[in-house]
Each structure stands twice: as C-alpha cells, then as structure tokens.
Design a protein around this nucleic acid. Structure first.
Lengths: 125, 125
DNA sequence: TATAAAGTATTACATTTGTAATCCATTGTC
DNA sequence: GACAATGGATTACAAATGTAATACTTTATA
C-alpha cells in the first residue's frame, strides 16, 4: 500500500467534502463549504491545489473544467489520524483513551448497544 | 477556564514527560526523551522555550537552574485534542469513530470488561 | 464584440513547526 | 585559575500551514 499524504487541519474539510460526494468542480466544493467555514473561494482553491500536489486528490477534465475526486481512501486516512492521535496523546495505550472517549461521548441507546456488541466480539477473539 | 495553548506534535512529547514527572530541569527532560527520540538537546530546549511562551509550562528557580512544570492540566489538553480530532476526522459523530477505535485497539480482557462497565454506566444515565 | 464572470495557475506573505546552532554566563574540573 | 561542560537566551532557516490576491484564459452576457 502506498503511503498516505499528510493532510492538514484545513485540508481535512476539503477531503471530507470530496469523500462524501465526488467528483466535484472547485466551485461545487466551495459551495459545500460555505457555511461551514468563512474561507474565501481562493483559499479553497489553494487547498485543492495543495491536495493535488500531495497526491490526495486527482482531477479529470469535464469539458474545460476540472472535477476533483479523492486519490486516497477515507478509511485509511482516518485510521492513520486515529493512530497518530493515540500515539501523540496517550503514548499508544488505548484503554484510558477509549474510556475517556466513551465517557465524553454523546451516545444513543443504540450506539451503546452496538459498541457493547463490538466489545463482546473482541472478547471472543 | 482559560483557553488552552495549541501544543504541536513534538511539543506533546515534552508535555507528556512533564505531566508524568515534574518539576524537571531541561536536562532531565532531555534524559527522559533520549531513546524515544533522536532530538539533540538543543532541540528539546527549544521546545521547552516555546511551551513556556505559549503558557503551557512554567518554571521555578532551583538555585541557578530552572525546573519546569506544566501550567496546563493534562486531562484538559487531552480532551481538547480528542474533541478536535473527532471534529476534524468524523465531523463530530462519535459512534463510528468509537467503533473503529475499539476494533483497532489491542485490549486485554480486563480492559474490555472495564469498557463494558463504562458503557453500562452510560446506559443508566 | 467588448465586458464581466468563472476557472485555473502563479505568487504572496505571516505564522507555526521541526530541527537545530551560536552566544554568553556560570560552574565544575584539572 | 584556565578550560571545558552546562544552562539559558538568542538567532537561524527551511518546510508546512493558513489565508489569500493577482494574472491569465476561456466562456457567458449585454
């Protein structure tokens, strides 16, 4: 597997748009992000350009316009972030981190049931 | 409550040392980090200086030397990181994130039991 | 068809971060 | 006491990041 590019805080917002819906033109990305951020369109263009350079996005031509789409897989990027986060903050020990997460989280009854199921699953491994 | 300073990736290592043991001299911090990193002592001094400037650390004099100690509370910083992480990567929705975390984690039987207990606790709220 | 709008490319510029080195004062050592 | 090591302060410098503006090109519009 290829190594994932490093995606900055701001760039994440752009990636999340394009993971949820692609391929979009730059302007469509701008529209998706309006409301979520106060960025000028030019700023979003810059972020897209950087993501292209990093290899996190690709584009294809649609007439004269470009349509952008992810070149990296969301779950992989998310996983990398998750691991980096745990390493940084908890030095790699998962349990206290998970406990804090769970306590902090706003979970529905179904969420809780499902998480318990996952834990029981793990128990059986 | 005061707003927390933004602690960078490298700076986290220094903070974790001082949260676990303080107040230490710069050199003691260097010693703690030897093995964990390949940083030159000067690099670690720089990180300490920046953390002082950001208000994440304070020092007190010990004779001529300084002894450094955290000026911010670990659990608060960790919480802020956690929330920032979730917002960035999952847009704030906790459940899928927790599920991924748990599946990914290397947990002992006791860990699992304890996490289940926490979930049951939440269930009763 | 000249003009404005939209797209893309190029350039800008301050701040933060990673990763130190240098300079100066002090202190411990031979 | 001269000299080296230590500690702290100041300076360095490139890459990444946040946040755009400008320039050029094509397209839609009056």
């Amino acid at each position: 597997m290829k190594k994932l590019p490093r995606i900055s805080e701001s760039e994440w917002l752009v990636m999340r748009v394009l993971w949820s819906k692609s391929a979009l033109t730059a302007n469509e990305v701008v529209k998706e992000l309006t409301g979520q951020t106060k960025w000028k369109p030019k700023t979003i263009k810059t972020l897209i350009t950087r993501l292209l350079q990093k290899g996190a996005l690709r584009f294809k031509k649609d007439g004269k316009k470009y349509r952008y789409y992810p070149a990296v897989i969301e779950s992989e990027c998310v996983g990398a972030q998750r691991r980096s986060f745990v390493r940084r903050v908890y030095g790699g020990t998962m349990k206290p981190m998970l406990a804090a997460f769970i306590e902090d989280a706003d979970l529905s009854q179904e969420d809780i049931t499902e998480l318990k199921k996952i834990l029981e699953q793990k128990e059986r491994e």
